[in-house]
C-alpha cells in the first residue's frame, strides 16, 4: 500500500502534474504528521499505516499550501468526502487538486479527476457505524436532565482553544461567528454559557457538511466528545431527509415531515 502511494506520488511529481503531494510522514516519537513533498526523490518519506487518520483536506484550504502550486493529496474516505463537500461549496475547481484515493478496504482507488471523486463519494453515502450509532442512542435514552448534566460536565472542560475549529476542514470561514463582536453572538470567556453556545454553534454550522472524520475530537486537548453532536445531526439528516442531496440544508422537500410545528 505504502509503496503504491510512493510510486504514484513520484509519478505525479516527476511528470509535473502536481507541484506538491500532501501525505503522512514521520513525526515526533511514534506519531505521524502531515508532510508536503515537493521533489520526486523525497516521495519515499511518505507513510501509510493505521496511524494515518488525520483529515488532511484542511490543508487544501490554507493559502500557504495553495501558494505551492497544484496539490495531490493522500485521501482516505473522510478526506474524499471533505473534498467533495468543499467542491460543492465551490472552494476549488475541478483542476485544482489531484487525489491519491484509498478505499475503506485499504486499496488504491483510481480517481483521475474530481468528478470521478464526486461519483465515488456519492456511491458510498455517509453512515454512522453501529458503535457510533449505539453511543448516540445511549445519550438519547437518558432523560433530558441527565443529558443536560452530561453536556454541562463535558463542556465545562472546554478552554475555548478552538482546536476543534482549526483542525476541521470545513471550518474555513475567514471570519468565524465566534470572533464577531458587533453583536457578540458567542459569549467569549470559557464559562458555562459561552461553552454551550460555542458547541451548539459549531455543530449547527457543520450540519449537513460534517463528514464524521473525527478530527475535532482527536484535536480536543481536554477530551470533549464533541463529535457526538455532529453524529446526532448526521443521523437526523439520514432519518428525516434521506441521502439524495449533496448538502441537505441547501435543499428541501415541500413535504418534509416534522411533528412539532403548530
Amino acid at each position: 500500500m505504502q509503496d503504491k502511494i510512493i510510486q504514484k506520488a513520484k509519478e505525479l511529481l516527476s511528470g509535473g502534474a502536481v507541484q506538491v503531494v500532501i501525505g503522512y510522514g514521520q513525526g515526533t516519537g511514534d506519531r505521524v504528521r502531515a508532510i508536503f513533498i515537493q521533489k520526486p526523490e523525497d516521495a519515499g518519506r511518505l507513510i501509510m499505516d493505521g496511524r494515518c487518520v488525520q483529515n488532511l483536506a484542511g490543508y487544501l484550504m490554507k493559502h500557504e499550501v495553495r501558494a505551492l502550486g497544484r496539490a495531490a493529496i493522500v485521501a482516505r474516505m473522510p478526506v474524499l468526502r471533505s473534498i467533495a463537500q468543499l467542491m460543492y461549496e465551490e472552494q476549488f475547481k475541478d483542476s485544482d487538486v489531484a487525489v491519491i484515493g484509498i478505499s475503506d478496504a485499504n486499496e488504491l482507488v483510481d480517481l483521475p479527476d474530481l468528478n470521478a471523486l464526486k461519483e465515488y463519494v456519492r456511491a458510498n453515502p455517509l453512515k454512522l457505524t453501529p458503535e457510533e450509532q449505539a453511543e448516540v442512542d445511549r445519550l438519547d435514552a437518558m432523560t433530558r436532565e441527565e443529558r443536560w448534566a452530561f453536556w454541562m460536565e463535558e463542556t465545562s472542560k472546554c478552554i475555548k482553544c478552538y482546536a476543534c475549529r482549526a483542525s476541521c476542514p470545513m471550518c474555513y470561514c475567514a471570519r468565524c461567528t465566534v470572533e464577531v463582536n458587533q453583536p457578540q453572538w458567542i459569549s467569549v470567556p470559557s464559562h458555562d454559557l459561552g461553552n454551550l453556545e460555542w458547541h451548539i454553534m459549531r455543530a449547527m454550522h457543520l450540519a449537513g457538511r460534517c463528514v464524521n472524520c473525527g478530527e475535532c475530537t482527536r484535536a480536543c486537548p481536554v477530551g470533549i466528545p464533541l463529535r457526538l453532536l455532529n453524529q446526532r445531526i448526521i443521523a437526523d439528516i439520514a432519518d428525516n431527509f434521506g441521502e439524495e442531496e449533496d448538502y441537505a440544508l441547501a435543499a428541501f422537500k415541500p413535504d418534509d415531515k416534522e411533528d412539532f410545528i403548530r
Partner: peptide, 23 residues
Amino acid sequence: SGNFHARRRWILFRSLLNFMGVD
C-alpha cells in the same frame, strides 16, 4: 422557499438542543 429551508434547520436544531439537554 424560505420557510422550507427554515423547517429543515429547525428539525435539526430542535433535535440538537434536545440531545444537549436544552429544554
